[in-house]
Design a protein around this nucleic acid. Structure first.
Lengths: 126, 126
DNA sequence: TCTTGACTTCGAGCGTACTCCAAGTATTAC
DNA sequence: GTAATACTTGGAGTACGCTCGAAGTCAAGA
């Protein structure tokens, strides 16, 4: 699969794909004889993982660390486990924050819906 | 309440508090006769709102826009409502992403827990 | 009154994560 | 073979959200 196809498949620019590879967020992608990227199944699953992590807001650095451990082989299982657990903790916290903010927005939205109807905002600040 | 007290109350630096005010993410904070920030109830509720939005990952720009509309008065109720709804949409999407990534991490963590015990990672890639 | 430490503004600097550009190589269509 | 297009690397540039530094002002205690 060419870089163009991959970029279209995942809705991410080719520049970003090259960037991910360059900084080590995914392992080096396989190439054609001419040196052109030719993503195989494994490459794609790394890309997918990277996109998943990034779109949840996890730092690039964490993925780089994970890839490094992966490349060091079976002796890093425990370290990888620890890394994944730490990232999960961050996300659980993040989820809480997002939910709290959604609640807050819901409250404000309800008040503004009333305000738009009546022309007056009920008792308040901000 | 002084800027120092506010920064300690919310676990945010004084620099950040000044930055939020400077860029218009919160309205101008009240001052003492000497020009020193003296946060009142209303100022605090703005700070709290700003922190809530930011910690959920919403852009500074959205809060600036909201404050601008607020300062334009009652004629902007509908616009404010729309802005809040748009931000909520973003957060609902963000929440989905975070949950998907947590699920993925949970799966990987389970596999690595087994791997740490057995010394072998079950059938796979990344 | 003087000193000390916290406050002020303004502008510059930094870290993260891309994003773009230049110069060159590879592949495809004719 | 040649043109057009897509790819390559390396490095520079950008956007966002702070974060820091400099130079000066303010306020509480000795």
């Amino acid at each position: 699969m060419t870089i163009k196809e991959v970029s279209e498949k995942y809705g991410i620019t080719q520049d970003t794909l090259r960037y991910y590879e360059r900084v080590g967020m995914i392992p080096t992608v396989s190439r054609t004889a001419g040196g052109i990227r030719n993503y195989n199944e494994t490459d794609l699953s790394w890309v997918e993982l990277a996109i998943c992590m990034r779109s949840a807001g996890l730092p690039v650095e964490a993925m780089i660390e994970y890839v490094k451990l992966y490349q060091m082989g079976d002796s890093t299982f425990a370290a990888r486990l620890q890394l994944l657990q730490a990232q999960r903790e961050i996300l659980l916290e993040q989820k809480k924050q997002v939910e709290a903010t959604i609640d807050r927005l819901n409250y404000k939205i309800a008040r503004y819906q009333l305000a738009v109807e009546t022309g007056k905002l009920s008792w308040d600040k901000e």
